[in-house]
């Protein structure tokens, strides 16, 4: 899933090697949203804004399958034991919001309509699917598509949901950050961060970290929503935060990349990249992998932000990279999924 876990974690507990070599390229024939690929058993899945789901062989980069769902897919593809789940966005109206597809049988198992358009990351937690529609309705459904509960968040939601099995954290474009009970959907707390949240929140060790469109980064106590500290970045923030044991890492729409101390919100370092950071940074033990919209990926020294490598791509690098099988998988314009072998 996006960010590996429902808490959204972009940390890889390994050192990233120095050598990156192009392994394969795959064309999806349509653009993607600011999401990431997901993978299972050496197959990578990605949904496009044209409405197709592509299954790509991780090793060879060849197509393993493709289904056409006809409506744009903004979220990463969720994967169960034998099904993939895609959430659909649409314009004025549509008959379907979520599709379950059996990859063994090669057929649509079920498709259901719940609400408006789904244009953000959905969550799969213990066979339950949690998602919001653009009108702010928050749903929890079971694996059969039955609604367990539905509540109204009171705001439009375009951000990434996160969950620790007890609480679901939702950021809205009215600047609100809310915690809902995972079992019953009851509102635990709600705070106002001061500006629209487009990125979402991550959960780690009893704390929630989020950012908003005024460039504020906040650390919040997950139990009561109290703000521990607030950091002001230089520009708007749209990408979900990444972290390791000590620091948070993120970039803004002016291209500045930051490392701040998780404990106290103080800046460790920041550098200017010249691009736009619209998706999450992948964090290794030693390095950061930063996707930029100015067609570059930067590999930075995590300790000081020094640029160790610059990889130029054919187009804007939109997907948050994933690391699998010693491969770094990126996605960029025009319609490309690209794998680099790491040595």
């Amino acid at each position: 899933m996006y960010g590996q876990t429902p808490q959204r974690n972009f940390y890889i507990d390994e050192n990233l090697g120095d050598s990156l070599k192009l392994k394969w390229e795959y064309s999806t024939s349509a653009g993607t949203a600011f999401t990431s690929v997901t993978a299972k058993d050496s197959v990578i899945f990605i949904g496009t804004l044209r409405g197709k789901v592509h299954a790509i062989d991780l090793i060879t980069g060849k197509r393993r399958g493709e289904i056409d769902l006809k409506e744009p897919i903004y979220s990463s593809i969720q994967i169960t034991r034998k099904e993939i789940i895609a959430a659909l966005a649409h314009g004025k109206s549509s008959s379907t919001d979520i599709v379950w597809y059996d990859v063994i049988d090669g057929s649509i198992v079920r498709e259901k309509k719940f609400c408006g358009s789904i244009e953000n990351e959905i969550l799969l937690y213990n066979d339950n699917l949690i998602f919001t529609c653009d009108d702010g309705a928050l749903f929890k459904i079971d694996k059969y598509g039955t609604v367990i509960w539905k509540i109204n968040t009171g705001t439009n939601v375009f951000s990434v949901l996160s969950c620790n099995g007890e609480q679901i954290i939702v950021g809205g474009i009215d600047g609100s950050l809310s915690s809902f009970d995972f079992v019953f959907g009851k509102l635990n707390w709600k705070i106002n961060t001061g500006a629209a949240i487009y990125s979402g929140a991550i959960i780690e060790n009893g704390f929630v970290y989020t950012n908003n469109h005024h460039g504020n980064v906040l650390k919040i106590n997950i139990n009561d929503g109290s703000i521990i500290w607030k950091y002001n970045a230089d520009s708007k923030l749209r990408a979900l935060l990444s972290y390791d044991s000590e620091n948070l890492y993120f970039g803004d729409l002016n291209g500045t990349i930051y490392s701040i101390d998780k404990l106290n919100g103080k800046i460790i370092w920041k550098i200017s990249s010249g691009g736009i950071i619209n998706n999450s940074i992948l964090v290794f033990k030693n390095k950061l992998v930063v996707p930029l919209l100015n067609k570059l990926v930067l590999i930075l020294d995590k300790n000081n932000g020094k640029v160790l490598q610059k990889i130029e791509f054919p187009g804007r690098v939109k997907l948050s990279p994933i690391y699998l099988n010693k491969q770094l998988i990126f996605g960029c314009d025009d319609d490309l999924i690209i794998s680099y072998q790491v040595n």
Binding site: S235, R238, L253, N254, I276, N294
Partner: peptide, 13 residues
């Protein structure tokens, strides 16, 4: 350019 890059959340390639 710098201002509109952030305003439009877009990079002109």
């Amino acid at each position: 350019y710098s201002e509109f890059q952030a305003k439009f959340n877009h990079f002109v390639a």
